[in-house]
Nucleic acid binder design. Sequence first.
DNA 1: CGCAATGATTGTTA
DNA 2: TAACAATCATTGCG
Length: 462
Amino acid sequence: MDEQARIMQALGGVSLAGHSVQGGMGLQPPHGHDGTDDGRKQDIGDILHQIMTITDQSLDEAQAKNRKHGLNCHRMKPALFSVLCEIKEKTGLSIRGSQEEDPPDPQLMRLDNMLLAEGVSGPEKGGGSAAAAAAAAASGGASDNSIEHSDYRSKLTQIRQIYHTELEKYEQVGACNEFTTHVMNLLREQSRTRPISPKEIERMVGIIHRKFSSIQMQLKQSTCEAVMILRSRFLDARRKRRNFSKQATEILNEYFYSHLSNPYPSEEAKEELAKKCSITVSQVSNWFGNKRIRYKKNIGKFQEEANLYAAKTAVTAAHAVAAAVQNSQTNSPTTPNSGFQMKDEEFQLDSAESKNTLLTNMFTGSSGSFNLPNSGDMFLSMQSLNGDSYQGAQVGVNVQSQVDTLRHVISQTAGYSEALGGNTMYSPNGLNANGGWHDAMTPSSVISPTEGPGSVHSDTSN
DNA sequence: CGCAATGATTGTTA
DNA sequence: TAACAATCATTGCG
């Protein structure tokens, strides 16, 4: 087989190249014998050469030309051709009729829509990236993680470019038309020698177009797949988890610990928190879900944090109260320990970090029991020890704890240091023995931790 | 690099 | 259907 192919190729080479010796040599044995043999071989090569020349050229150009000419000039030719065409048409139609219909193709439409939505097939640059950003935002991705977005966009642009360059090849202006005209020319050429009706040419063009559009569809499909993979890789929030900003965590924690008895923010509260933290509502829900479960699992671990945030809210509240007091009663100038004077610049929420730790130390320092891995029961019993100030603590414990903190802060500010018992415990007062929170006792409609402290609880601390 | 923290997802439950 | 519980996957720190 191999040998034969080589021979054929060699012969072809002879015919095409005219007088290539290669062909002759190809038939020779690998190693020539003697001079006498050589002459004979040469003759054979010549003969072969002549034969090939005759078949390929002489016959084609002379003989065939004559015949063709004869046929073309035959008076019956047009009639014969038309009849043949008609027959062909009929059989062709019956054969191809089934696959003739050209549906709108919902698949293609879907792909187009998808590509448009992903910003791949849309208008250039601006629109594309905007659409990509929109798609990214719509996919549930948190928000403005510019780094991964730019990464995503650059990858998307790559896909986009490949898609467009590929598409251009097959688009109307490109190879499709070129190929079509080529085929049409070929067919027209052939129509002189064999019966080809214009309709048939038309149909052929249709077939070509369909082929090209199917290629286009494949291109679109694979582009869609690429985009999908890209999206799943880059926009899967789980893969690209980002920690919330410190501020956001602060806000969430403040809410959590100031509503510790019932840490279930309402829908509105969630929305508000989401807005404040510039995260989504579902992220807020996630956060609270995680927080609740993790807090409950290991209360001891969170105790310090609880104290810190309780103190923080207390500071905030105290600030508000102090401001109110200062505004209403301009007397009572400087209290003995003016280090905790409620000055605006000193108790600015964010810059109060050192103050907060100070307060925390104040609270935690006096009793090491804060860091005990206590259970909810423990806290409840401790709470009961406090006596009257927690009597009937059925009302929103969150508010109460806050007020309580506030009271302590104020009393300390005023120089009273008697109240540092276990009652500054910022414990899951609402946590029942089962480890679950009580039923919502306070409507968690309050969003900011600076809820009016004075209006809630009236007790007699001093 | 190991590990704890943490945001998200998934499956279950009331 | 929201909350819970378990788990995954990533981040960030020592």
